[in-house]
Design a protein around this nucleic acid. Structure first.
Length: 564
RNA sequence: UGGGGGAUCGUCUAGUGGUAGGACAUCAGCCUUUGGAGCUGAUUACCGUGGUUCGAAUCCACGUCCCCCAGCCA
């Protein structure tokens, strides 16, 4: 059986080759290095699956490392949420959780070492001047007047920076590389900056903080990382990554490998935009079920298994692209189809009275919990004279190919009887259908003598007297266009927000077994989609989120009929 | 116009000189007590132009287009 999940990707190939040649002493150690300045999203899931997956595959290990070198953006809330999310996704860093801030002292010593070698210097230009001196993409930069300070002066100044003698922005430590380099990242990049800010872990022990370019390669080396996987935009930082390791006499030299980050259609993935949506209250929070955050997907009802399968399937390459949301939806449907118990739930109830069913009578009918899983068993569904069916399952004047309830057309009530519409009760003023009267054929009870009779449609239903009321929240794509950033002149991505991405349905009628539903447990509402119990559920109120609708071929038929 | 990357079905991805394959999506059909699921089939791709070769997505040359970089963010 050809299985594309077994297909090699270029990173696996590199690692396999390195293992063969003994490049890193036969070890494979990767790391997942989030900055705790936001919540993890499905793009991070790709990186997590890649890093942990590669290590698992080759018998190596993976560290979780918080890249916490910028105290002004980072906090503990994020540190905790990230751990929670990685664990939820199904990965275990065992005892290997680290922080770049754990290494601040060693990083400082490395900086002193570089300085004493004449490979770093304290610059006292303003940030603006540093930018001016850097040149442009097409013109070389020029040396800072402070570039020629003596080693002694640099050492002294850097020590005093650490000691807190200078306000923010007055000095930085820079690598001394080449102001004329065609790679602007090599034009004496900043290694340390002064920030009189409390750090979420080190408090006020430090007022100078290393930059990513300095801290990252050294943190990797300290941890003995063999393969440092990152996204494409760091590609032209690689010469700097290598420079830092070489000049710092690092004990090992991890290999940085870049891959394309995940983009998903109909959503946004940048931390900035996600934060923006949350802060402007355009969504309900980081766990809003419309967001591609792991917390949002979890609340929406996504399973870790589905997300992992998705990440495995999309592969890893260097060309950037946009994965269709439909692919993600495919994987959650596939997973939930196998495991979600089926239940009856009527979202927009229409009252149905079975005129020839004895008043006051009721009976229990047997229903299969999951046709895909024989072990899931069966349950009893109460049936009575007054039922609810889906409002859209009845049409007084049916369009072509409408196989549901309509005057004169028999339909089956799932696991129950075949019924037929005999009359309609309408609102005199609005003409709205309020109630449908039907007759049933007692011979057609499930398992009965006439049960096999062919009818075009089968409807889900609940018994009015036995059903529970629930709130159901429906979600659509957060953005109208596949590319959220595709907006007109002068507009930003929020112009593409889908005004109908959230719809709250109240007065839904669900079968009573749902009273026992556990938080975040997932169900298939027959003929509707997959739903999970929202944490907003209370003793008073059941609340469900629609994870994803079932594929709906009738909707397609109807749509093409309307287009004609 | 400097540097670094990248171009294969609509989308994502295999391919490493020898039949361009898979998944999603789309469209048909079968089946069905979920218009679900499942099954079958179909459509659709090597950025362009030259060259090397018996043979090129793959090697070479010249183009074209797209992405990233001028934070004391990561």
């Amino acid at each position: 059986m050809p299985d594309d999940s077994q297909a090699g990707n270029f990173i696996r190939e590199i690692v396999a080759t390195d293992l063969k040649t003994g490049k890193h002493g036969g070890r494979v150690v990767t790391r997942f290095p989030p900055e705790p300045n936001g919540y993890l999203h499905i793009g991070h899931a790709k990186s997590i699956c890649l890093n942990f997956g590669i290590a698992q595959e080759f018998g190596g290990s993976t560290n979780l490392r918080f890249d916490d070198t910028n105290p002004s953006k980072e906090n503990l809330e994020y540190v905790q949420a990230i751990q929670d999310d990685v664990r939820w996704l199904g990965f275990d860093w065992e005892n290997r959780m680290f922080y770049a801030s754990d290494y601040f002292e060693r990083l400082y010593l490395s900086a002193v070492h570089l300085t004493s070698k004449g490979k770093a210097y304290v610059d006292s230009l303003s940030a603006d001047d540093i930018r001016r001196y850097r040149g442009t993409l097409t013109e070389p930069g020029k040396d800072s007047p402070y570039r020629t300070r003596s080693v002694e002066e640099n050492i002294d100044l850097f020590a005093r920076m650490r000691a807190g003698e200078f306000p923010d922005g007055t000095h930085v430590l820079r690598a001394k590389i080449d102001m004329a380099s065609p790679n602007v990242n090599m034009r004496d990049p900043t290694l340390y900056r002064i920030r009189h800010a409390a750090h979420h872990r080190t408090g006020d022990a430090w007022c100078i903080y290393p930059t990513y370019d300095f801290a990252h390669p050294l943190s990797d080396a300290i941890e003995g990382i063999t393969h440092s996987l990152c996204t494409l935009e760091f590609e032209d930082h690689r010469p700097l990554y290598d420079w830092v390791l070489k000049e710092s006499d690092a004990q090992c030299h991890p290999q940085q490998i870049e891959f394309a980050r995940l983009n998903l259609s109909h959503t946004v993935m940048s931390k900035r935009k996600l934060l923006d949506l949350v802060e402007k209250k355009l969504v309900a929070g980081w766990d809003d079920p419309r967001l591609p955050t792991l917390q949002g997907l979890r609340r929406r009802g996504y399973t870790p298994e589905a997300i992992r399968a998705f990440c495995e399937h999309i592969g890893v390459a260097k060309r950037d692209g946009v994965v269709e949301m439909a692919l993600l939806e495919h994987f959650i449907r596939e997973d939930l189809n196998r495991r979600a118990p089926r239940v009856m739930a009527v979202l927009r109830p229409l009252r149905v009275v079975i005129d020839n069913y004895p008043e006051g009578a009721e009976e229990d009918l047997e229903a299969i919990n999951n046709p895909e899983d024989p072990n899931a068993g069966t349950r009893k569904l109460p049936f009575s004279r007054t039922l609810y069916i889906e409002h859209e399952d009845f049409r007084e004047v049916p369009p072509k190919k409408f196989f549901r309830l309509t005057p004169g057309q028999e339909v089956r009530l799932r696991y129950a009887y075949i019924i037929q519409c005999v009359s309609i009760v309408k609102d005199d003023r609005t003409g709205e259908v309020l109630e449908v009267h039907c007759t049933y054929d007692p011979e057609t009870r499930s398992g009965g003598p006439q049960a096999g009779r062919k009818v075009k449609g089968t409807l889900h239903w609940v018994s009015a007297a036995h059903a529970l009321e629930a709130e159901v929240r429906l979600y659509e794509h957060l953005f109208l266009k596949a590319d959220a950033g595709d907006v007109g002149e002068g507009l930003d991505y929020t112009a593409n927000l889908n005004p109908n991405s959230f719809e709250r349905l109240t007065g839904c009628q669900v079968e009573r077994t749902l009273a026992a539903a556990a938080p975040l447990s997932r169900y298939q509402f027959e003929r509707q989609g997959y739903f999970c119990l929202d944490p907003d559920t209370s003793d008073q109120k059941l609340v469900f989120n629609r994870t994803v609708a079932l594929r709906d071929s009738w909707a397609k038929i109807e749509k093409t009929q309307q287009e004609r």
